[in-house]
Amino acid sequence: MNETCFITQSNIIRKHALIRNEKVELNNEIFVNFATFIKALYKKEAISYPKFYKMDNLSKLGFLGAEMLLKDNAFLDRYRKEEIGIVIMNSSSSLDTDMAYNETIKDKSNYFPSPSVFVYTLPNILIGEICIRHKIKGENAFLVTDQFDPGKVIESVKLLLDKDHAQACLCGWVEVLGDKFESVLFLIEKEKTVKEFNPARKYSPFTIESLTQFYQNK
């Protein structure tokens, strides 16, 4: 594990707070459920992307997290699109949409399986949505762990960066099940690139300590 890497952008989306690059913005609104929350966030971030409304909840959440990381940021200009990897993990895979799809087939007198729901019964569709939006064509991996696991995030991302399978990574944790949700995303870049574009700025190193500390931000 040789390359030194840095966290050049980060954000957390939780019910009560958004945390961008370690600055906390509290949500004072009361949200009835995930749907009202995510709609409000989409409006607040002033994004215009009609496909957003077709996505399942997991994709909506991860998509907005990725938007917040990538907008007003020259990250995408620094790399060819096939040099950017995406590694995302969660605990319940696509269970939120699995249960919704299951509702459409469990009653034989009211049977209406739909391909537009079924396709989201795979968690990596979220990665596909982010790739389509930003034309990212590099390495992908969706892994399932019981909780946010900084060690596994680092291991998986370093496998890509150290052997030049990718030059930079969007990575983290996107979990949705019913009205419980959490998105924790990072942009990870190599020291040599970071020195080129912003030698003066101090970024957090891509270590278990940094990720743990950031995650524990309430």
């Binding site: 569709i125 990212i136 064509k137 590099g138």
Partner: peptide, 11 residues
């Protein structure tokens, strides 16, 4: 080994 994404369509 290598992995890529089409960045074209989900299905």
């Amino acid at each position: 080994s290598a992995i890529t994404n089409d960045a074209n369509h989900i299905s």
